[in-house]
Each structure stands twice: as structure tokens, then as C-alpha cells.
């Protein structure tokens, strides 16, 4: 006995609670990995929200040149880049350094989905364990613990399902999404010229 509760109940519901914590941890991992990946593509560059532009390590600006539903493309002037001594470490392109801002570029988008999917597996498991224990020993003070565990599971589940929904796989598909199909390629050129 642990207080008014049986030891087994405390262990079972405690483990279920531990699973929920682990699930929350996985959710954080997903976010963290996404942020690191963002750092890798924009390392050394700073975003200036007031201008919606990036500043590169050589203090040059990258302006927005295009966008679709999930991404925004920025580019520096080719003349500036091609004259820059740090170009080899920066870009292979003759047309100016580009940066794409995506919420999460693939594969990190789908890695996030993977981590969040596994987090939900843990939540399902917590619910399963709680129910099994409650059926095995449906005695009064223990059931209060079961109810608490179940409530916590439901809240965590709801919260993490929301996160999973908000994490698209983001795989750059074989075909453009319909409404963007026509706009896509030329637009860069257009925007570029107007700049």
C-alpha cells in the first residue's frame, strides 16, 4: 500500500503518467530538430522582419522573390554575390545566393511527423494500460487515480493530435499543387526583374 492506494495501482498509473511525459518530450524533440535544421540553411544569416529581408554575413541583403503556400524564396543580387570573396562557401549559383524559408523543409518536416506519431503511440499505450489496470482492480480509491490518469491522457492526446495535424509531411511532391501550377516558374524571373 502506498497511502490509500495499492502499490500496483500507483505503479501502473505512474508508468502511464511517465509515458505521457515521454510523449511530451518527443514532441519537444520534434520541434527542436526542426529548429536546428532551420539554422543549418540560414546559419550566419539574420532575418529582418521589418523589411522582410535577410542580411548575409557580408552585410548584403536578400530580398523576397517568390512564394508559394508553404515557402518563401529570398535572393541576393547576383552582381554582389559574384564579386563576393566568400562566395565559394556560400553558394554554387551564379544568380545570387538564395534562401528558402519553409516552416519545416523536408525531410525535417516528415521527421517531425515521425516523432509526433511515436509520441501519440505512447499516449495510446498510456490509455491502454490505464484501462487494463482499472478493469483488473476496480476498487474505489484506486479508481480516482485511474480517472486522473485517463483525464491527463485525454488532454495530452488532444494536444499532441493537434500538433501532428499541424505537421505536414511536406515532401516535395512529383506534381505542383494545382492552383500553383501555372504561376510557378516564371514568377521568379518576373519578381526578379521588377526588383
Amino acid at each position: 500500500m502506498t497511502g490509500p492506494f495499492t502499490t500496483e495501482a500507483v505503479l501502473a498509473y505512474g508508468y502511464a503518467a511517465g509515458l505521457l511525459v515521454a510523449a511530451a518530450g518527443l514532441d519537444r524533440l520534434a520541434r527542436h530538430v526542426a529548429r536546428r535544421s532551420e539554422r543549418h540553411r540560414t546559419g550566419g544569416f539574420t532575418y529582418r522582419p521589418e523589411h522582410d529581408a535577410w542580411v548575409c554575413p557580408a552585410d548584403q541583403l536578400l530580398w523576397p522573390v517568390g512564394q508559394d503556400r508553404h515557402h518563401r524564396l529570398y535572393r541576393a543580387r547576383p552582381s554582389v554575390c559574384n564579386a563576393c570573396p566568400r562566395k565559394p562557401d556560400c553558394t554554387p549559383s551564379r544568380h545570387g545566393r538564395e534562401i528558402v524559408r519553409a516552416l519545416r523543409p523536408w525531410p525535417h518536416s516528415e521527421a517531425g511527423r515521425f516523432h509526433r506519431g511515436l509520441a501519440l503511440v505512447l499516449v495510446v499505450l498510456a490509455a491502454t494500460l490505464t484501462l487494463i489496470e482499472a478493469v483488473r482492480h476496480p476498487a474505489w480509491p484506486d479508481l480516482a487515480l485511474a480517472a486522473a490518469a485517463l483525464a491527463a491522457t485525454a488532454v495530452t492526446g488532444w494536444w499532441l493530435t493537434g500538433h501532428l495535424r499541424a505537421t505536414p509531411a511536406g515532401f516535395p511532391g512529383p506534381f505542383p499543387e494545382p492552383e500553383e501550377k501555372s504561376a510557378n516558374r516564371d514568377r521568379y524571373t518576373t519578381v526578379w526583374r521588377s526588383e
Binding site: 540553411r41 534562401i99 528558402v100 511532391g173
Partner: peptide, 13 residues
């Protein structure tokens, strides 16, 4: 995280 599809890979298909 150093695996990078090119910037364009995400916008062009």
C-alpha cells in the same frame, strides 16, 4: 540536418 534538398527543390517540382 545537413541533408539539404536544394532550395528550389522545395518550390519547383
Amino acid at each position: 540536418s545537413f541533408v539539404q534538398l536544394g532550395a528550389r527543390q522545395h518550390m519547383e517540382s
